[in-house]
Amino acid sequence: MNEAGNLYIDLQKNLIKDGPKFLSHTLIVKEHKAYLKPTISAMLFCVVYIVIGFFLISLASYVYYDSAKLDLAIFLGGFGIAIGTFGVSLIQPFLKNASFDKSTGLFENSSDRNVKLARIVSLQINNKVVLRKQALNYSCFELNMLTKSGRRINIINHNNLPQLTADAEKLADFLQVELSDHCRQIIL
């Protein structure tokens, strides 16, 4: 727990409720830049939906031109569009270009406001259990950062702790900030 004036920040609190049950990103450090690279397995899971979506849309076109069954074509096409769109929406977070650039002095990602690297105070590793209602629960981990204004931003979120720890150490070293482990015992 940190206390600064009236500001109380719970560093143990997770920032994201869900998380994938696989390694989604790895950190790459190149000279003045550190950035997140999506893994092939993460991309494949998303591509499955896009492929099925395209397959169903193609099948709908074939059915319509071959047998003029409009209702079946609409049904297949509708499902295809829904599944394909879902796949595209899934893949977007994996493509987000989160980077720490020393040449510009900024942290950038597609979902948060840019942060000056000089304002990053520390990094934290948090753990959580993702509760699936109709599937196995599993552990998941977050790498979060804290800024001088007390804002917390998620950087990485997946279930491969060794890789996340290695990436966190690499990033802390790159940014020259403190890294702390806030994993706790979770009793359900």
Partner: peptide
């Protein structure tokens, strides 16, 4: 074909643990 499409979707959920599809289904 129905089986293959369903099996692929089921496979992606139960193998991948992709949170979003499970949430959408729920």
């Amino acid at each position: 074909i129905t089986g293959l499409v369903l099996a692929t979707l089921v496979f992606s959920v139960i193998i991948g643990g992709m949170p979003s599809i499970a949430s959408v289904t729920e």
